[in-house]
């Protein structure tokens, strides 16, 4: 088994794990973690594609590598934003779940208009 195939299988496994967690786990923090696992799988995939040098016959295609770096920055910001929202939600309500479905039910009781 070549290194590229091993990396590819690892990437696919990470994507699968992340997707499963993102879809099935109700807890927001675990969803955020699952998103990061899924993202890592995608970045690994980009790495393999860079190795393939699909674009111009380079030994290693630089474009996917640039994309991974950008992608990591974006995923990091997304995680930071999500964790901040979750922390704030916890501070306000003392719970870190999205259940029960509160948003629609309590529209205007004691809210500043």
């Amino acid at each position: 088994m070549s290194a590229a195939i091993l990396a590819g299988l690892t990437g696919a496994a990470l994507v699968g794990l992340g997707l499963y967690g993102l879809l099935t786990d109700p807890h927001p923090l675990r969803k955020i973690l699952a998103f990061n696992i899924l993202g890592s799988g995608v970045f690994l995939l980009f790495g393999i594609i860079a190795r393939k040098g699909a674009a111009a016959g380079f030994a290693a295609d630089p474009v996917p590598q640039a994309m991974v770096i950008t992608g990591i920055v974006v995923a990091f910001s997304a995680t930071a934003l999500a964790v901040t929202l979750l922390l704030r939600l916890f501070q306000e309500t003392r719970r870190a779940t999205l259940e029960p479905d509160a948003p629609a039910k309590t529209p205007d009781a004691g809210v500043d208009g």
Binding site: L85, L89, E92, L98, P103, T106
Partner: peptide, 21 residues
């Protein structure tokens, strides 16, 4: 910063991240 808006924002963000990945 009301709790229900925070929950709505977090739910929105999780859907959006799922979509973008």
């Amino acid at each position: 910063g009301r709790p229900e808006t925070l929950a709505a924002a977090l739910r929105y963000l999780l859907f959006a991240l799922f979509g973008s990945v």
